[in-house]
Nucleic acid binder design. Sequence first.
DNA 1: TTTATTCAATAGATAAAACCGATTGATAAA
DNA 2: TTTATCAATCGGTTTTATCTATTGAATAAA
Lengths: 306, 306
Amino acid sequence: MTLTELKYIVAVAQKKHFGQAAQACFVSQPTLSIAIKKLEEELDIKLFERSSKNEIRITDIGQQVIEQAQKVLRETQVINEISQQGKDPLSGTFRLGAIYTIGPYLLPNLIPRINESAPNLTLIIEEDFTANLSTKLKQGELDAIIISYPYDEAGIETAPLYEEPFVVALHSRHEWLQKEQISVNELVGQDLMLLGAGHCFRDQVIQACPQCMESNNELTRTLEGSSLETIRHMVAAGTGITVLPCTSMMHSQQNHDLISIKSFANPQPSRTVALAWRKHYPRKEAIQQIIDNIQQCQLPGTQSIR
Amino acid sequence: MTLTELKYIVAVAQKKHFGQAAQACFVSQPTLSIAIKKLEEELDIKLFERSSKNEIRITDIGQQVIEQAQKVLRETQVINEISQQGKDPLSGTFRLGAIYTIGPYLLPNLIPRINESAPNLTLIIEEDFTANLSTKLKQGELDAIIISYPYDEAGIETAPLYEEPFVVALHSRHEWLQKEQISVNELVGQDLMLLGAGHCFRDQVIQACPQCMESNNELTRTLEGSSLETIRHMVAAGTGITVLPCTSMMHSQQNHDLISIKSFANPQPSRTVALAWRKHYPRKEAIQQIIDNIQQCQLPGTQSIR
DNA sequence: TTTATTCAATAGATAAAACCGATTGATAAA
DNA sequence: TTTATCAATCGGTTTTATCTATTGAATAAA
């Protein structure tokens, strides 16, 4: 049984004439006759009562088959409609993940841009650690994730978005208040508060200043499972100092008197924020749209990468 | 788009593996790959996200298409079920027509036989004049009709069922009461009551005794639109005599004292009752079943025709 | 009756497709 | 690097779909 055959029998049922039905199907009369004969043999029933001269008559069983055939053809048409509607890669649902240390600062800026530039695209946002995002990306639960380099996973492509310098946050009564810039090595011996394991930002800070871990293991351990916001409140409380990605400060209303921000002396430690997606993900246009929109965000303190 | 292609994508969606899906469809992997590629090109969307190694992923739009494809395939399967169920020619509906002068006497005997020998066959009965039955038969509103010869219509086949002699019905105080048999010519001059125009039986009686019309035009005209039953009541009332097909008397409980039945002297006038159907009607078995059942009826006074 | 006409079925030939086995290319794991 | 896996591609064959032309059946007209 083929869809063509079903089209033919429906046409014959409508025209009640093999020749006219063939014409309506843009085939020759023998083509249609043979196709219908083939279907009748396959189903082992007579669909039509042929009588030369007078019009074709549909058998009882043929009537049932033809009605069902019309149903099949209608349902088939729905497939075309679905694909037509879904053809726009900038439509449908896009599941975007972001790590905890980027999402809260980038997404409020990004989401309105995407809603404007791709109004048919429904965004679903998810924040998590890099490792979890990565798993979900590979499993297809997420379409793309915003992470930071280094990031190298099999079957995953990435594009750098912007370079984000690190800054030091300290209490406004801290001894470094008058300093213009902080050198990385100066962090050693300070009460440096870091995020818990799992946050890539923690690793990046440690990589920038490996010795800083020597003194403050205990303090950092108490912050396991914490967030940048919590740590910032602790800075304001005078518990210690911390290193933050610059975007976490710029947009914050809580950038109040109790906290002072210092940039690092060259070479400034920084991280590269990037977008990652499955290599074979089919909606490349959607990916590019996300990339473009993120780069248009131009968060203060960051440097675009083109 | 073809049903085969739809089968293929459903198989891939289930197996998440081109090779295994191909095996499940009993085709080679290249065959399946090419078919899916062709469908994706026709719909202009990607249904699957191929990644060598890991398993195949279904795109969002692909998921919708595949679900719809499954629906199409299910509906297609219904066509097979319909034909399977309807393959029995002794199932479904059979519309049987009969002329007024046969139906009431044959059908009460016939219908139980058919219900027993073809329990899946639903009979629909219709009584009318030969001309109307003939039209409905040709238009396909009836599947077969019971009429009497002569009957010759283009595209219609017939089979004789039985020979039905005519009899004379007269009041029990009629002068012919002592007669054994009546000769056709004796009818001339009698108050002979006939059915109205349209009833073929009327024509057959007239044909058997052309002269009998000379005397009783007026009486017969008043019976226009009447029935055999009415005429028989008039016989009982003593209004006149009539000629009846023998089956109309044999099974009647009203064959009471007031009416006496006389058979004709040889050559007995009679009519041949026959079944008629469209030459191309496909359920020949159903036709044969009807014929067989009618012949098994063996109505008293009739002679079977084999 | 014969002839003409209509319409679906059939015949013969060709173009299109479906399909297979073998191979390639890409990818990831050892 | 090598090996293994898997889908895509290649080249060739068979099957199917389709065409034109004709036949055959049946009716309608002459």
